[in-house]
């Protein structure tokens, strides 16, 4: 990576780090709530960018992992297990297994079939959520409290929760950046560009793609854990295909294959949706054409527009 391409992500993270300070200038808890949601959305979108932007795996069921993370918190909490590390551990383990199984099956297919099969797995999980009567079924479940850290309600403070989300995003960003430049990432990018060429020099695409699929799923599950804590509520809606579509939307809007594009996309998506919804409840009618314009005219999404390079 060139030095120039570092400017945009450094500025982004600096800005995000200052949000709690800036929030005191306005309606503080509202600003914190929306930026926390942006950071969580960015984390999920970042993991999807690893799949789409670097692996050419267009998953239409990525929200399933958000659901798995969120329900890890809700289900464990409802049984009196409030430990944040247990929640995270459970989310990681469950998403690992789910990603291994669904990935191993989905990756047998290509192109539009891969999109459809990931969609089907996502919907499967969504309907599983709606059928969990003990955990609220369709209506979802309100959490009694946020996850506890060593028994202490550390996350109860919105600023702390924000910084935990920020740290998760920064960590995931640095991790993904390292991965993309590593041997593994180079193989993944090679498979994205020309799988037959990669096979011809001795790489079996499946194992690399599956590994990336699992990694991305686990990162999204962490986002799910954070989302449950932010909202203090979980519902099957977290795992719907509309959510998955929204994630693709965010990644494309921000610019595929740049990682920080996912953060810009998440911010632009959330702020625009928030802004437009003040004027009309049919804000999606305005939103859709904006995305079309961005895709048509701005190569590399908003990141390309900002000239941050790829």
């Amino acid at each position: 990576m060139k030095r120039r391409s570092l400017i945009l992500p450094v500025m982004l993270f600096a800005l995000l780090a200052l949000v709690p300070l800036l929030a005191t200038l306005g309606p503080r808890s509202f600003i914190l709530a929306i930026t926390t949601r942006i950071v969580i959305l960015a984390l999920a979108a970042l993991s999807l960018d690893l799949l789409i932007g670097y692996g050419a795996m267009i998953s239409f069921g990525h929200a399933a992992f958000l659901g798995l993370g969120a329900y890890s918190v809700a289900i464990l909490s409802s049984h009196g297990i409030n430990n944040a590390f247990a929640h995270i551990g459970c989310a990681l383990a469950v998403s690992l297994v789910f990603a291994l199984i669904t990935g191993a099956i989905s990756l047998r297919t290509k192109g539009v079939y891969f999109i459809m099969i990931t969609l089907a797995f996502g919907q499967m999980l969504f309907f599983l959520g709606t059928s969990l009567a003990a955990y609220g079924g369709d209506d979802g479940l309100t959490l009694a409290q946020r996850s506890l850290v060593f028994g202490a309600p550390v996350l109860k403070n919105d600023v702390t929760l924000y910084y935990v989300c920020f740290a998760a995003l920064l960590g995931a960003y640095l991790l993904c950046r390292a991965i993309v430049a590593s041997r593994f990432g180079r193989v993944l990018r090679g498979i994205r560009d020309n799988p037959v060429r990669m096979q011809a020099i001795g790489f079996a695409p499946f194992r690399y793609q599956l590994t990336a699929y699992v990694l991305a799923g686990m990162i999204a599950a962490v986002a799910g854990v954070l989302l449950a804590n932010q909202a203090e509520f979980v519902s099957p809606a977290y795992a719907t295909w509309q959510r998955s579509g929204e994630l693709i939307f965010v990644v494309v809007l921000g610019g595929l294959g740049s990682l920080h594009g996912a953060i810009i996309g998440a911010a632009a998506f959330s702020l625009l949706a928030e802004l437009l919804s003040h004027y009309t409840e049919h804000w999606a009618m305005i939103f859709g054409p904006i995305l079309i314009l961005v895709v048509l005219f701005v190569r590399g999404g908003l990141t390309g527009l900002l000239g941050g390079g790829r």
């Binding site: 390292a178 991965i179 590593s182 041997r183 593994f184 193989v187 590994t211």
Partner: peptide
């Protein structure tokens, strides 16, 4: 790289 050890290395810059 395909002939030189594992490509399941995730951290150092290839």
């Amino acid at each position: 790289q395909a002939r030189d050890g594992s490509s399941f290395r995730f951290f150092s810059n290839a």
